[in-house]
Design a binder for these strands. Sequence first.
DNA 1: ATTAAAATTGATTATTATTATCAATTAGAA
DNA 2: TTCTAATTGATAATAATAATCAATTTTAAT
Lengths: 163, 163
Amino acid sequence: MITNINIKPERKKKLNEFLSQKKLKSTKQRDVIFNEFFDNYVGKHITIEDLYEKIKKNNPRIGYATIYRTLKLFKESGIASERNFGDGRARYEPIRYDGDTHHHIICKDCSRIVEFSNNHIESCLKQVAKLNGFSVENYKIEVYGSCPLSKNGGNCEYNENAS
Amino acid sequence: MITNINIKPERKKKLNEFLSQKKLKSTKQRDVIFNEFFDNYVGKHITIEDLYEKIKKNNPRIGYATIYRTLKLFKESGIASERNFGDGRARYEPIRYDGDTHHHIICKDCSRIVEFSNNHIESCLKQVAKLNGFSVENYKIEVYGSCPLSKNGGNCEYNENAS
DNA sequence: ATTAAAATTGATTATTATTATCAATTAGAA
DNA sequence: TTCTAATTGATAATAATAATCAATTTTAAT
């Protein structure tokens, strides 16, 4: 299990470094989105639409396009990563620390997502790539299957972002 | 390397079984698309658009929508698989034999794709899933990096579907 | 604090991949 | 052959994301 204490200041620092390096600006909107994202979605996988709906409750003036642009900015700055689990909409998750490479097991019945890391598998993959002359930048491993609830015959309606 | 002798009849048989089981029909268009797909794109990863353009040369009456529908049919019948490498367009590849689970190393500079299989990695993944109570249906492993040509400083413009 | 330049926002439109619609055609069973 | 259901091709609809642009805001310089 990954400990999860006080990652916000470190991530905020990394974002600010990125902004100043690229001569971009801090704004109220970026702060609001940053806080919402890192307060409530660490370890989760949120879509642009869901994040927009959530933020709209307290900040109805923030536009849809700003959420898109800001999450893209977070991605470029290395504090968020984009995932595509095959339903046609991108999901974003906070990167908890630099070098956090973890992967996902996805229930195809209820979309429940479990995360895992495995150095052994990664070193195997690195070796396979090396044999083919490739240098590795990053991996994406997804395992699709049925989760425990699903197998119990329940209707296993699971929503990791439910409030 | 996977041998590649005469897979068409076996795949055609599987498609026909699917069609008759679902009470669907054989058509000229499906034959044309099947032949093009299995004659020229085994081991490759073709987009709908590229396949449409290729087929149009000899069969200008076949519509775009038919290519979409037919590749979806191939997928459902288990003779093609859909891949998404993150550029927003689905790619299709022929499934050479039942149970062909292989994975991809993708050059982020030139989009060159190398395939690999690895039973050891797969059994590790199955075990990880099992520890989390999941039963596994399928895996998707993608390794992104730089290919040998890319690292040589060349502009490595590679196109696996070039004629 | 003022100002000026550059970046950002929000609203909207555009783009792009994919899917749905539907009248006309075709395949396959009777 | 005939009938029914599936298929086709053309086109419109959908949906996620990106681009546009005038108005606003941030930041650095004064």
